[in-house]
């Protein structure tokens, strides 16, 4: 119980860090902290496989991607001065939502589950057991995940592998070449720029 409270506190602090820290890098690292405490919770909830995935895929791969993009784009949060009322509204909504969800969870009148039974049924949430569900009950979903990942790939490639912005995109290579030559010949002539632009 004490461990839970401690870890819960850590995860909440990490979450608050995501929301409050100014530097994106710090916020991302705070999120990694929260993700790791969640992995511990997964272990206590008999989901060992998911805990491993959480550390390797989420805290590892996905967050590294995030950090990479943050570094690449050199994002710095400029502090939002505008619309303080929205900020307070958001805080209010957040507190209300949290209160509602806590009440919803704690007011659940159902009996506390039997740990022994849970442990026996989940068998540590091992990969084999998950695979059995994944490839039978969730088979359609599993196939759809494949479609989804392909879609994401096509989308990402389409986004990034694009011809250069249209000032150049619409001009064929020869036309541009010709235009450039002409322009070099008679610098600053407006008609030539026009012709090149077509």
């Amino acid at each position: 119980m004490v461990t839970f409270a401690l870890l819960a506190a850590v995860s909440v602090v990490g979450a608050l860090g995501v929301v409050l820290l100014r530097q994106p890098i710090h916020a991302a690292l705070a999120l990694v902290g929260t993700l790791l405490t969640l992995a511990v919770f997964f272990v206590t909830l008999q989901a060992h496989f998911l805990a491993a995935i959480q550390v390797i895929v989420y805290a590892g791969a996905i967050m590294v991607l995030f950090l990479f993009v943050i570094m690449l784009l050199n994002v710095e949060e400029q502090h939002a001065g505008a619309r303080p009322w929205l900020r307070w509204l958001a805080y209010g909504v957040g507190v209300l939502a949290a209160a509602g969800l806590i009440v919803g969870a704690l007011a659940d009148p159902r009996q506390i589950p039997d740990p022994a039974l849970a442990r026996a049924a989940l068998r540590g949430g091992n990969a084999g057991l998950i695979a059995e569900v994944l490839f039978v009950d969730f088979m359609l979903a599993f196939q759809l995940v494949g479609v989804l990942l392909l879609t994401a790939m096509v989308g990402a490639v389409a986004l990034v592998q694009r011809p250069q912005p249209p000032s150049a995109g619409a001009i064929s290579a020869e036309a541009r070449e010709a235009g450039l030559k002409e322009r070099r010949g008679r610098p600053g002539s407006p008609e030539v720029v026009e012709a090149g632009g077509r």
Binding site: F138, P165, S167
Partner: peptide, 25 residues
């Protein structure tokens, strides 16, 4: 079921995000 629905939702949405940002200029 809800998981199938979620996956459908994502497959529907991701291309539209890309298409909405289509005009690079």
């Amino acid at each position: 079921d809800l998981i199938t629905l979620l996956l459908g939702l994502e497959i529907l949405s991701l291309p539209v995000y890309v298409l909405a940002a289509w005009r690079s200029d």
